[in-house]
Computed example of a mutant assay.
Amino acid sequence: MRLSFVKMHGLGNDFAILDGRDAELPRLSPAQIAALADRHRGIGFDQLIVLSPSRTADMAMRIHNADGSEVEACGNATRAVAVLHGTAASIETEGGLLQARPDAAGAEVAMGRAQFDWQDIPLAYAMDTREMPLGWEMLERPSAASVGNPHLIFFVNDVDAVPLDTLGPEIEHDPLFPERINVNVAQILSRNAIKLRVWERGAGLTLACGTGACATATAAYRQGLVDGEVTVRLPGGTLTIRHDAEGGIHMAGPAQESYRGTFELDHFS
């Protein structure tokens, strides 16, 4: 079976999008997704996005990391889908219902409210997630938040000094996190600017992570480190995160199409 895809990215965080809104798609196995994600022998991507009809929204979006695992939310991919769709839309995800609208610069997404209870992250046992009494080598006392998927946030003096390529996978797979965890290291630059690097569960180091930017900005705002609207500077570019009066998180930033193509599914079985 030959399938069509659209390759898109948000700040270098890249996706292959399969659009099944008008025609039913076969369900791909984790092994097939991992093979497609291979940057030498497949399409190459951080996440595979599958769109389908929804009974409760304009469309449904399923998100698969490069290792084939399925995750609940992806902020950069939501912006990409909004740009692909072309008009404001409600998007059903495993992490909840999102509202997105394209704009001149890319798209803005209403991400909902962050969750901070240890069971919402989730953690293996009860703990205050504001400033956790934990440490992994140079990384200590993180915050935790869920914005549809789980994030751990460390505030450090210099994000570039952190060996995130080695500490990231160690923390991701720690038994404290039964569903694994995304690992963020953040440097507060001012009341309205944060520098951020992210190790994504199932994907590794990425140029940008939308939900990581949301979780980090919210954790910093919760601790009084920043104001309600901040720019988050990632290796791939900058996102703007804004908190409304009800605690809702709004993320704005670029997203664009790279190219379109097809592949023979049987080649990746």
Results as ranks from 00 to 15, higher is better:
Gly236Trp: 00
Leu3Asn: 09
Thr166Glu: 10
Glu137Phe: 09
Phe263Trp: 12
Val156Gln: 06
Phe45Gln: 10
Asp22Ile: 05
Arg141Asp: 07
Leu3Pro: 05
Ile194Glu: 11
His40Gln: 14
Pro163Ala: 09
Met132Leu: 00
Pro53Phe: 09
Ile181Cys: 05
Gly168Lys: 02
Arg222Leu: 11
Phe45Ala: 13
Glu131Pro: 02
Phe263Pro: 06
Gly212Val: 08
Ala107Arg: 02
Asp103Asn: 14
Asp19Pro: 07
Ala60Phe: 04
Pro175Cys: 00
Ala37Ser: 11
Val147Thr: 11
Gly148Phe: 10
Glu200Val: 04
Thr238Pro: 07
Ser269Arg: 13
Glu72Asp: 07
Val230Arg: 04
Gln119Pro: 01
Leu11Arg: 02
Arg197Thr: 05
Ala217Ile: 05
Ala145Gln: 03
Gly86Trp: 07
Glu92Asp: 15
Glu108Leu: 07
Leu225Ala: 13
His267Pro: 11
Leu189Gly: 12
Arg2Phe: 15
Arg79Phe: 13
Leu152Tyr: 01
Asp244Phe: 09
Ala34Ser: 06
Cys209Trp: 05
Ile181Gln: 09
Met8Ala: 14
Gly20Arg: 03
Ala203Gly: 06
Thr78Gly: 01
Pro178Gln: 00
Ile43Pro: 10
Ser69Pro: 08
Ile17Lys: 09
Pro150Ala: 01
Pro175Arg: 00
Ile153Glu: 11
Ala23Ser: 14
Leu164Cys: 04
Asp103Val: 04
Leu25Gly: 03
Leu51Ile: 04
Phe177Cys: 03
Thr218Ile: 05
Ala252Trp: 00
Leu164Asp: 00
Ala23Leu: 13
Arg242Ile: 02
Arg62Phe: 04
Pro175Leu: 02
Ala186Lys: 08
Trp136Gln: 05
Ile171Ser: 01
Gly202Phe: 00
Ile181Ser: 00
Asn149Leu: 03
Val226Glu: 05
Ser258Trp: 14
Gln99Pro: 07
Leu207Trp: 10
Leu84Arg: 14
Ile43Ala: 07
Leu205Cys: 15
Thr166Val: 09
Gly148Gln: 12
Trp199Tyr: 11
Glu264Val: 15
Ala16Gln: 08
Ala213Arg: 05
Met138Gly: 13
Phe155Glu: 15
Ile171Gln: 02
Gly75Cys: 07
Val159Trp: 12
Asn192Phe: 02
Ala31Asn: 06
Asp46Thr: 14
Pro122Ala: 02
Leu189Phe: 13
Gly261Gln: 12
Ile17Val: 15
Gly106Arg: 02
Asp58Ile: 13
Thr129Phe: 03
Asp128Arg: 05
Asp158Tyr: 12
Tyr221Ile: 11
Gly68Thr: 07
Val185Arg: 05
Gly112Cys: 03
Ala215Cys: 11
Ser54Gly: 10
Ala144Gln: 00
Thr206Gly: 13
Ala124Met: 01
Phe268Asp: 12
Leu84Val: 11
Ala203Cys: 01
Pro102Lys: 10
Ala255Arg: 13
Leu36Tyr: 01
Glu229Leu: 09
Thr231Phe: 12
Ile241Val: 15
Met1Glu: 09
Lys195His: 12
Leu196His: 01
Ala215Ser: 04
His9Glu: 08
Cys214Leu: 14
His151Tyr: 08
Arg197Phe: 04
Gly202Cys: 02
Pro178Ile: 02
Asn182His: 10
Asp67His: 05
Val162Tyr: 07
